[in-house]
Each structure stands twice: as C-alpha cells, then as structure tokens.
Design a protein around this nucleic acid. Structure first.
Lengths: 164, 164
DNA sequence: CGATGGTTGTTCAGATTTGAACAACGACTC
DNA sequence: GAGTCGTTGTTCAAATCTGAACAACCATCG
C-alpha cells in the first residue's frame, strides 16, 4: 500500500528514478536528436551554406499564406529565441532569401517575407535534406513506430507549449 | 508497375517527398526535441548553474568505472565535438566538479575524473532533472509508445554512428 | 482622453559550439 | 630504429544562441 502511494507522492527526499527501460529511452532520445541535428546541419551547410534554423525558417515561410509571417510567430514555430530569429533573418536578408516588411495592422510588427530567390533556394535544397531525413529516420521505422513516435512527440510538445 | 518502381528509384529530378504523416512525424520530432532541450537547460541552469552537456558529462563519468573516462570517448558518448568537450571540462574543472589526470597507458591521453564534489553535485541536481524528464516525456507515454520510441531512436542512432 | 500594463522586435554582452590547424604521441612496417 | 600514418587533445577564429534591457507601440479601463 505504501509502495503504491509513494509512486504518486513526490518529496524532496523521495525521487522516482527512471528504471532501466525509461533511462534507455531517454538516453536514446537525447543522443539521437543530437546526432541527427548534427548530420542535418552538416548536409545543409555543404549543400547550400544554410543552417538548420535557416532552412526551417524558409520552410515555414514557404507554407505560410503570402509567404510571410510575423517575427514572434515565426520564432515560436521554429523554436528559437526572438534574438536568435532577428539574427538569422538578418543573415537570410543579406543572402537575399528573405525580406523584411512592415506589418500593416501593427506598427510595431515586422513581417519576414520569403523572396523568389528564397523559394528557389528552398526548392533546390529540399531534396537533399529530405533524403537525409529519410535515410536516417523515416525509412528506418515501421508504420507502428512512426505512429507511436509522432503521438509521443505531440504529447510532449503540447505539454511544453502549454506550460509557460 | 512504373509507380511501384519509382518508389525505389532515386534521381536528381525525382524526389520521394515526405507524405503528410511522415512530415508530421519529422516536424513533431524536431520541434519537440528543441523545446525539451530548452526546458531541460532552463531547469538545470536554475537549479545548479549547469548546462545540459555539463550535466551529461557528470552522469556519464559517474557511471564509468573509476568515475573517469578518456576525452575522446566522453565526447562521443555525450555527442559534442572535441573542442566543445575541452571547453566544458575546463568549466567543470574551474567549478571543482571534474579533474584532469594523465592517462597511464597513453601519454597523449587525458582522463576526465569526477571529483567528490562533482558526485555530490550530481546527486543534488539529479532529482529535479529527472522530474522534468518524467513530467514532459516519460510519464506521458504509454508502455507501447515508450517501447516504439526507444526502438526508433536506437535504429537511427545506430545508423548515424556507423556511417562516418 | 490618459495612464497602466502588456507586446513587439532589436540590441547588447556573455557563453557556447564547431571545424580547421596544430603539436605531441602511438602503432606498425621495413 | 626511422619513417609513415593515424590518433589525441588543445587552441583559435568565427558563427550562433540566449536572456536581459530597451524603446516603440497597442489595448484597455476608468
């Protein structure tokens, strides 16, 4: 009875450690996400001199109505800090892949707009990127694993986004 | 017949794009890993002034025989570059959590050794860290999801580690 | 209307990461 | 043993990320 209750009673001195299975899951997740991130970065850098965040910015913009988006929302979607986004948009602007526009409805607002050149760059780079994603992740998973992973990621994402 | 074969025929002009399900899986994975990383980092920084890589270094060392490990192997385990590890070990050494020792068997080698202070620091910080990992990931997944995710991550990790 | 409080994007300083270059050492061959 | 090739860890410059501070703007309530 005690054993059962302790599972749900967190205190300073009584930690619910991860068992071997849970630990293995967590370790695998962390290592793999770092390794994959590194590989993706490497591929994009070699193919187009882009970083992964930069590529993601292009993707999100390309799928956004009018190929444009407010800075804050873009930062949320791509999961970077506001200052990191400012920096990256500056870089992309120098490269001519993105432009800034003032927001009509909000004087403070800034719109990041994908340029023609940006769209072409994305179209040129995407195949190689997708190939890496397939080769190391997607194509290696069964339908069931893909489904379960997506479900798991969504639950966690939801929890993280809704809490602070 | 053509349709079937094209699935397995990659060329410059014919890309196997991700379908909606696959795209959702990939997007969820990327977003979630970044969000989780950010949250972990925040928690560790607040609780002990540690970064996630630093914490992982302490964990790996604590589980290693003799609480010590060669720099290169440590870098592989924690998934950071050699130079990043040098930097972090310097930081941890300043904080007194890790010491360097020369490797007996290899004159070039450097051993990173966990100090008593480092072990205590880890013991103090681990509960709060585990709590975050549980709250946002582990405890939200079914047994099946946990199993599938682990399997998926391992396949990808294996592929990434064995190819260059 | 005016004050208060929240939002927006940028700037800045500081910390961290990476890859390339490098010097020192090990292993193996002839 | 000397030579060759690979490994090891560090240093360095450059790029990037983050959080805090900030100025400008919006919204809302009295």
């Amino acid at each position: 009875m005690f054993k059962f209750e302790r599972q749900y009673t967190e205190s300073v001195t009584d930690t619910r450690w991860l068992d071997a299975t849970e630990m293995a899951a967590w370790r695998a997740f962390v290592s793999t996400s770092h390794l994959l991130e590194r590989r993706i970065e490497e591929q994009l850098k070699a193919a187009a001199g882009l970083t992964h965040p930069q590529y993601e910015i292009l993707v999100v913009l390309s799928e956004s109505p009018g190929r444009q988006m407010r800075m804050t929302e873009l930062a949320r979607d791509v999961v970077v800090s506001k200052s990191a986004l400012t920096y990256q948009i500056n870089q992309l602007e120098k490269a001519g892949l993105v432009e800034r526009a003032t927001c009509p409805s909000d004087e403070r607002g800034v719109l990041a707009v994908l340029t023609e050149k940006g769209a072409h760059c994305l179209a040129r780079v995407a195949p190689g990127h997708v190939e890496v994603v397939r080769a190391f992740l997607i194509d290696r998973l069964s339908r069931e694993e893909l489904r379960a992973m997506t479900s798991a990621m969504r639950k966690t994402e939801e929890a993280l986004r809704s809490s602070a």
